[in-house]
């Protein structure tokens, strides 16, 4: 008899043998969750405690500016500008790549492309920075020259173009390459989950593939796309090394994307901290930490917004 007689072999009551294991596991899981919250609270407390005293700093403490906001403002502006450039390029490109992977390419090509995109995410940001200075910036100089020659009436392209090519535009493009994998990976997942029946509904009405994507795939994934872009924005905002290597630090508000001469180009908060922290001492450290607090709040808000939109979309769909 291979089947045990149910009356002679009574199974142990559920859960008795693993009770100790349960308790341990539950403890570990709870502890891990608390540690994360504590770490977040700790970072916030540190930024507030160290940064807030710099609020009324002037003169030397504010790097020679009248008050702290005059110092933080241009950096915040530069941060948002670089991130915006990054998204303007990365968002459409990511959507395109994600669509190729999920709907256009044959399965084998799509798989390879997916891996390549994931690899992009694995490259350390300092490498992106070096690539930005040594390769991308130089390649872009002729493009900037052209923009300056033909479009300099638009303030964005006023020039003069530095021979190094290390400009706000270059920094934004490097950030775009770095944000690309995140946005692509999330969009790809969302597109691949589009219910087959909605896609068939569109195709059966005589939709071409692109029309089917507009009718079925995009509406289904809209909130996911928005949150993917915002998560990409979060990365672009906080990225340090790539920008620090490409841009020289300066405290100016400038829409000029293709210049660096005479400090005519904005910098970002993260890069500014990285470049100045080594030389800072005393109250200047507080000032830099305060700029970090500003970045923390912005990044937090962007991520929060992204998740809120994603959650709202789930309820609606």
């Amino acid at each position: 008899m291979s089947i045990a007689d149910p009356e002679t072999e009574i199974p142990p009551p559920l859960g008795t043998t693993s009770k100790a294991g349960d308790a341990v596991f539950r403890g570990l899981a709870t502890a891990s969750a608390s540690v994360i919250l504590l770490a977040l609270a700790g970072v916030a407390a540190f930024l507030l405690a160290q940064g807030l005293p710099a609020l009324d700093g002037t003169g030397a403490q504010a790097y020679g500016f009248d008050n702290i906001w005059v110092y933080v403002g241009p950096l915040l502006f530069g941060t948002l500008l670089a991130a915006t450039i990054a998204l303007v390029f990365a968002a459409p490109l990511s959507l395109g790549v994600a669509l190729v992977i999920s709907h256009y390419a044959p399965r084998r090509v799509a798989k390879g492309l997916g891996w390549a995109i994931d690899l992009l995410a694995a490259i350390p940001s300092v490498i992106y920075g070096l690539w930005g200075i040594e390769f991308l910036a130089k390649q872009l100089v002729p493009v900037y020259m052209w923009l300056e020659a033909h479009l300099s009436f638009i303030p964005l392209f006023a020039g003069p173009v530095p021979t190094s090519g290390r400009t706000m535009m270059t920094a934004g493009l490097v950030l775009a390459v770095m944000a690309l994998p995140i946005i692509t990976a999330i969009c790809r997942e969302i597109f691949a989950q589009t219910p087959v029946m909605h896609q068939e509904a569109a195709l059966a009405l005589g939709a071409t593939r692109w029309e089917m994507i507009r009718l079925a795939v995009f509406p289904y994934g809209r909130s996911g796309i928005v949150s993917a872009v915002l998560l990409g924005l979060g990365r672009a905002l906080g990225e340090t090394m790539a920008v620090a290597l490409v841009l020289s630090p300066s405290i100016v508000v400038s829409f000029n994307l293709i210049s660096a001469e005479g400090g005519d180009s904005s910098s970002t908060i993260a890069a500014n901290i990285a470049l100045n922290f080594g030389n800072a001492s005393g109250s200047k450290i507080d000032t830099l930490i305060f700029t970090g607090l500003v970045l923390f709040v912005i990044t937090f808000a962007v991520n929060f917004l992204g998740r809120w939109i994603a959650a709202r979309g789930v309820k609606k769909g």
């Binding site: 509904a201 569109a202 059966a204």
Partner: peptide, 26 residues
């Protein structure tokens, strides 16, 4: 497919569209 329409096993109106827009989708 524009000449030969199809109705599926499970009803599949486009979820984000109104009744009106669903009818006009094709």
């Amino acid at each position: 497919r524009r000449e030969i329409g199809m109705v599926f096993q499970r009803p599949n109106p486009f979820p984000t569209m109104s009744i009106y827009e669903n009818v006009l989708a094709g």
